[in-house]
Design a protein around this nucleic acid. Structure first.
Lengths: 344, 344
DNA sequence: AAACGCTTGTAAAACGATTTAATGTTCGGC
DNA sequence: GCCGAACATTAAATCGTTTTACAAGCGTTT
């Protein structure tokens, strides 16, 4: 499958183009970067030559000279997480819109890899980084080091607001509160909160919100909330949790994310429990699958895509503006009530 | 949050380190790249200095000089697709293992963006590219151009085998055949194949395999196969398809992927149809959710992760070896039978 | 005709890391 | 005390692109 006469001899540089077009390298560079500075006839000839010899700009050389490469790093702790994935897509799109290129890094749940990716981005001299997972051990330090070198950093999925950087997050406490209010309004009183067996800030915040809703309830004395755990490694095997819930006489289950909820749903169906008559069930994240279950699952939706676009805009603004005020934006989650809590 | 006295003045280069350590830049470089060539005492001092001044290697400068940067591009047509996502993870892991860094590019279903990403990778001078989506219009040409510049390219999710590159894929025709054989063996005769409304090679291959299984059946005259479509944009709204299936008197449904199958499942449950007594249901891809449904879904599992690792190994081998024989590896899918076809 | 401005084009010096070839240094052996 | 080998270090060239400062050409104005 031979194209035109192959040019096996290494890379073709701007000098080769210059020679072939009978101009100087500087002119070729001008054609590429400030076309208005070169006469139309010359410009055309150079462009033709570029096409003919198959020249492609060497980004390394360019960046070396330029110093700002208009590249952003997008640090995703786990691309399997739909929250982060949507966020990444919003970020990618926005960056593109503003003419920035994006280096997408997935740490696949490994803290160690996340830190390696930070080092990688540092070596790549990206202008800014959009980072998730900053609360993982060691990650915050690595990001601080990055920032001290002048790289702009915006944190995502982290609503705290006292550090010297921008951040964008969702108000998880409010999300939990929404769920609590919803369940209590429906008359549920014994609520199980099912979460994972490793500490994870957002999940804890959701529980706090749930508890606040309970405390605010007029009949708060009658409300009971219990925290249960499932193993992070085997979400689909929430068997013990399901058993504990059935044995515990709960009339509602709030699970810290949708996959857990769906696993529980399946267990409940097998046990002959009807949702929501016997037990109301609600998840978090509103994954596409939630609305597709036989009993559509109530869930809390987060404006993930917008998180990504907003964070990216903040980051780009910080990269462009020298005097820049750090901002902390917290988005509000919204509850989508479906059959699994409302009934039909 | 100030660490040690910040060094706001731009980047610290190898020269700065050299000056601070009282050696020449060459020595610093040697410490970094061939530590055995420098006396232990000097080495230690240089390393300390690097740490003290916070030096980070400038990848652009390094790559410019080196020419081979041991970087691979990972071109993913759609990171939402679990098949490609798993593949990407396998690839990433393997690349890491061999000391290659990875530039992960997600085209988010846009052909135009995919092509831009190819150009981006070309400018980055990556050594090789692992590409999906090569059958999309224009992508093949862009990859050819890349290859003509000397970049190694391995195709994924593409079982064809006559071009001048390696490729790795799954035998989709066989996958369809497995499903057909399974359903026929269970006594099903009127089979609906539900796919999306845009042409997609792997999905068509699955149908072909299904038809072959039917043709091979001793009682092939009694077997009926019909192809139905759902809109790509609204998988969860396969309402018409579900209605058509119920009206059509089918006793089995094979859907081209799991999300479609799960959507249909939900519709069937609402219509009071029991699975698999009235209609057997089987999907494709074996997503985690498949086994979590109240009626666990039969599906076809592809060795996606291994696809990624194998493809990456081929790519790296091609990058390292000058004389390299192109290979075409086709993996075999396997059927996981669950309640949705077997019953209890 | 001299002076000026405007348009095009170019030579040459960066950018930071690597590497080759050469220069110092040290030290054991005689 | 001298020679050569082995070791440690370095000066300088190089990678490809961008940019600054300048030169050349040419038309217009005075």
């Amino acid at each position: 499958m031979s194209g035109p006469a192959d040019r096996p001899t290494g890379v073709v540089s701007i000098k080769d183009v210059a020679a072939a077009a009978g101009v100087s390298p500087a002119t070729v560079s001008n054609v590429l970067n400030r076309p208005e500075r070169v006469a139309p006839a010359t410009r055309r000839k150079v462009l033709e030559t570029i096409d003919a010899v198959g020249y492609v700009r060497n980004a390394s050389a360019s960046r070396l000279r330029i110093l700002d490469n208009y590249a952003l790093g997008l640090l995703i702790a786990d691309i399997e997480n739909p929250f982060l994935r949507n966020l990444a897509q919003g970020a990618q799109e926005t960056a593109e819109e503003y003419g920035y290129s994006v280096l997408l890094c997935d740490a696949a749940r490994s803290t160690e890899r996340l830190i390696r990716q930070i080092d990688f981005l540092a070596e790549q001299q990206v202008t800014g980084v959009l980072a998730s997972g900053s609360t993982l051990p060691g990650v915050g330090d690595a990001l601080d080091k990055l920032r001290s070198r002048g790289t702009k950093v915006v944190l995502v999925d982290e609503a705290e607001g006292t550090f010297d950087h921008c951040s964008v997050g969702v108000d998880d406490e409010r999300g939990g509160w929404l769920v609590g209010s919803h369940l209590l309004e429906l008359g549920r009183r014994r609520i199980a909160y099912v979460t994972i067996d490793v500490p994870f800030r957002p999940f804890d915040d959701r529980l706090a919100g749930l508890r606040r809703a309970a405390a605010q309830h007029p009949d708060s004395a009658s409300v009971e909330i219990e925290r249960l755990e499932v193993s992070l490694e085997s979400l689909d095997d929430g068997g013990e949790a399901a058993a504990a819930i059935l044995a515990g006489g709960f009339d509602a289950v709030f699970s810290a994310n949708d996959p857990i909820a769906i696993g529980l749903y399946s267990k409940f169906v097998h046990a002959g429990v009807s949702i929501p008559e016997d037990i109301a069930l609600i998840g978090y994240d509103d994954v596409p699958m939630a609305s597709m279950l036989p009993v559509p699952l109530s869930s809390v939706r987060q404006p993930t895509r917008m998180l990504g676009t907003t964070a990216t805009k903040l980051l780009i603004e910080e990269c462009a503006d020298d005097d820049h005020e750090h901002q902390h934006v917290a988005f509000r989650p919204s509850l989508t009530a479906r059959t699994s809590t409302l009934g039909t």
